[in-house]
Computed example of a mutant assay.
Amino acid sequence: MKVGFIGTGSMGSMLLDAFITSGALKPQQIFASNRTAEKAELLAQRHPGLNVCSSNVENVKNSDILFLCVKPLQYKVLIDEIGDEVHPDQILVSITSPVQIHHLESALTCKIAKIIPSITHLTLSGASLCMYGSRITAEDRLLLEKLVGSFSRPLEIQESHVRITSDFSSCGPAFISFFLDQWIEAAVEKTGISRDHCTALASEMLLGTGKLLTEGGFKPQELQERVAVPGGITAEALSLLKHSLDGVFHQLISTTHAKYDEDLNKCDILFGDSKP
């Protein structure tokens, strides 16, 4: 099996690294092409044996599965470039949410899937959000989920839910890190504790909390009730948070959805507003 990556920027290189680190793919099985050739060459230096292609067309010709790791508004130009080279037996995987499966199926003859990754895959963890086009077979699904399952938990979702699920799986690490950073900053200012010490404590706490929720059988509300003794310090602080953050998460979701709708509209226009 040969797997191609068109685009080796932040997410493309992260996925490629995860496949190799997890042992799912060997460098010799991977073909990479990038608008800036030096970026692909750097990956080949890091992973000896990795094949760097001189063009996206060369990449397509060599790959059984092709991951498109470019920005949404770059898709149409890329599809026009490679459209005549793909064939019905190939699987093309998009990793961006605004570009819809029907956009790609209307423009290409190959099989289409969409898998949204997360930076958490760098530690062989987190969820991969999986969506499948009409030409994908049961065997194709098993193959793709086995591949991404080597470094993540594959979760099949409806494409209509891609934005809200991405808020948690893909954007979530940034949101949680922002919360921790603000908390740490306040702790340093109020108490003089070392930033490094406080960051280490917060990081270990976050890791342990994640394990309690994924392996320990707790739901978020149950965990709050277990930690917060009525009338205690934690309960008092939770009361403050509930009051101070009232409505914030509704606004957060509205913000991410508004940006998604804007990008989706741009993609509809680029692809001629094709509908399923």
Rank of each mutant, 00 (worst) to 15 (best):
I193K: 06
D181F: 06
E156N: 04
R141E: 10
E159M: 07
S160G: 12
S118F: 01
R153Y: 14
E105W: 05
G133N: 01
I184A: 00
V162D: 03
T191N: 08
S128K: 05
A127Y: 13
T109V: 14
C130T: 09
I164K: 07
S134T: 11
I184T: 05
A127W: 03
T120W: 13
I116C: 07
L104A: 02
P117I: 12
K190Q: 15
S106K: 11
A187P: 05
L143P: 02
A107K: 01
E139F: 01
L144V: 00
L108R: 09
M131Y: 03
I116W: 02
A107H: 08
R153P: 06
S166C: 10
F151R: 00
S128E: 09
E185M: 09
K146R: 15
Q158V: 05
S150M: 03
V148R: 02
G192H: 08
E185A: 12
L142N: 10
R135Y: 09
E189L: 08
T123I: 15
I115Y: 01
F175C: 03
C171P: 07
E105I: 05
H102P: 06
H102C: 11
I112H: 13
I193S: 13
K111R: 13
S166M: 07
I164C: 10
T120E: 11
I115C: 08
C130W: 01
I116K: 05
H161P: 11
A113C: 15
T165K: 15
I164M: 09
G172E: 01
C171M: 10
R153Q: 15
A174M: 06
R163L: 08
S125Q: 15
F151I: 05
L144H: 02
R141L: 04
E139S: 10
M131Q: 04
T123V: 14
A127N: 11
K111A: 07
E156M: 07
A113H: 00
I136W: 02
A187F: 01
H161Q: 12
H102D: 14
A113D: 03
S177R: 11
S166L: 10
E145C: 04
I184Y: 08
A186N: 02
G133Q: 05
L122I: 12
Q158D: 15
P173M: 06
T123S: 14
G133T: 07
L155T: 12
H121A: 12
Q182F: 02
H102E: 14
R141W: 02
C110P: 04
C171S: 02
T109Q: 14
A174C: 09
G192S: 04
G133S: 06
T109R: 15
I176M: 05
L108G: 03
H121Y: 04
V148Y: 13
C171I: 13
E185H: 14
T165D: 15
M131N: 04
P154S: 04
H102Y: 15
F175K: 09
I176S: 11
T137P: 06
L129E: 02
P154H: 00
S177V: 03
A107W: 09
L129G: 01
